[in-house]
């Protein structure tokens, strides 16, 4: 009897989790959500924000498909107790005013240039390329079946004076 109930409840759980991961959200949506959630588990140095009314700048390459999803999803949202301002930038723009820079969608060379421009600046860089961490990006996303995993370059984060919550680090696939 007890085992029966347990089996049933495990099945419910399994179904629920599959649903949670697969059907409700597209991969782009999940990435948008992840980007927002990263910001919630990371502390920026206080001098980053000029006044309490300053927005929280999330920057994304203007030509990428995810920019529109972000625009849709982030509208009216807040993070770090600030209103999100989504900035769609090109390679030539200055990325240093961003708190989060989502660099997927930039060409390899452009991404390297932006990354090197942001080195030592308090900007959380997120990317999807295999070499992203190695190139100096802070968080690198990876598709693993239905899930999306991430790894953290702690060294780069420290240089950028970003303090990443241990809760987040615990979830990371890899911390280097």
């Amino acid at each position: 009897m007890v085992r029966g109930i347990q089996r049933v409840s495990w099945m419910i759980l399994l179904v629920a989790r599959l649903t949670w991961a697969e059907t409700q959200y597209s991969a782009e949506d999940v990435k948008c959500a992840y980007t927002l959630n990263f910001a919630k588990f990371i502390d920026w140095p206080p001098d980053v924000f000029g006044s309490p009314r300053d927005g929280f700048h999330i920057c994304v390459p203007a030509q990428g498909a995810i920019a529109d999803r972000m625009e849709a999803l982030y509208s009216g949202q807040r993070v770090q107790n600030r209103a999100i301002e989504l900035l769609k930038l090109s390679e030539r723009d200055s990325w240093s005013r961003c708190q989060v820079a989502y660099l997927n969608g930039l060409a390899h060379g452009a991404r390297e240039r932006v990354l090197s421009a942001l080195r030592g600046k308090p900007v959380l860089t997120i990317g999807e390329s295999h070499e992203f961490n190695r190139e100096g990006g802070v968080i690198q996303l990876r598709h693993a079946g239905v899930h999306i995993r991430f790894s953290v370059n702690l060294n780069a984060a420290e240089k950028a004076r970003l303090r990443i919550s241990s809760k987040l680090l615990k979830l990371a696939e890899e911390v280097r």
Binding site: M1, V2, I5, Q6, V8, S9, I12, L13, A16, R17, T19, W20
Partner: peptide, 22 residues
Amino acid sequence: YDETGMIVGSYLRTESPISCPP
């Protein structure tokens, strides 16, 4: 449960008849 009410994590003591409610 997540914010939509779906079970996302659970712990059930093996000898206990309790299960997570939907």
